[in-house]
Amino acid sequence: MSPITISFIRGTVITLALTIASIIFGIILALILAFMRMGKSKILNGFAWFYVWIFRGTPLFLQIVVINFVPPLIYLSVTGKPMPRSNGIMTAGYLPMLLTSGEFKSGIIALALNTGAYCCEIIRAGIESIDIGQHEAAKALGMSKFTAMSKVIIPQTMKRIIPPFSNEFTLILKDSSLVSTIGLTELARVSRQLSAGGKWSYLFVGAAIYLFLTTFSTFAFDKLEKYFGRYE
């Protein structure tokens, strides 16, 4: 394989790993936030609201930069020693080292925190869109709140939240290119580096790979939506 092909594969792997990992962590976070938003506790509700307010209201670009650069600085000023972390820029693109680098982790954390705020609202809207009669029917049959949620409400929510999730996945897939600002050579950065010196066609190769990935994910989410909506 030519070095160029290897570069593109490496970039694609980084982009996919970033996207999938951050979506998974983001959804877990979003579930917790959504139930905080819908719960009775005013403090938890307020916290979740504040969280969503911050992460939806500021640029992802800045969130990535802050999460990558601020903790080491705080660590340094508190302990007087530099924070131990492996540096992604110094690994010269060696994949296993890239995937364990501090920048990669910062990227995942930032993307997960950001998508968590959006997914929280998607999940909350999905759950709140279920007719009150479903809650009442479950309660009248004697189900606990937990059983009602897990057996009645959430399964009906799935079909409705898949399309906005698909949308969010596409956005994160593309916006993961913002982590190039902290030095991670993901797909967009690879394309840009290779295009240096007037070889602009590599930019289109990168774009084509993104397009392929988003098309594939949209298709997969469509299938998922059909599966969860098979009862209609």
């Binding site: 029917a137 049959l141 009862y231």
Partner: peptide, 18 residues
Amino acid sequence: CIKLGMVFQRFNLFPHKT
């Protein structure tokens, strides 16, 4: 609730179940 069965005006069947 288990002692009382309830039938609603708008059925409220679980649509995702047969």
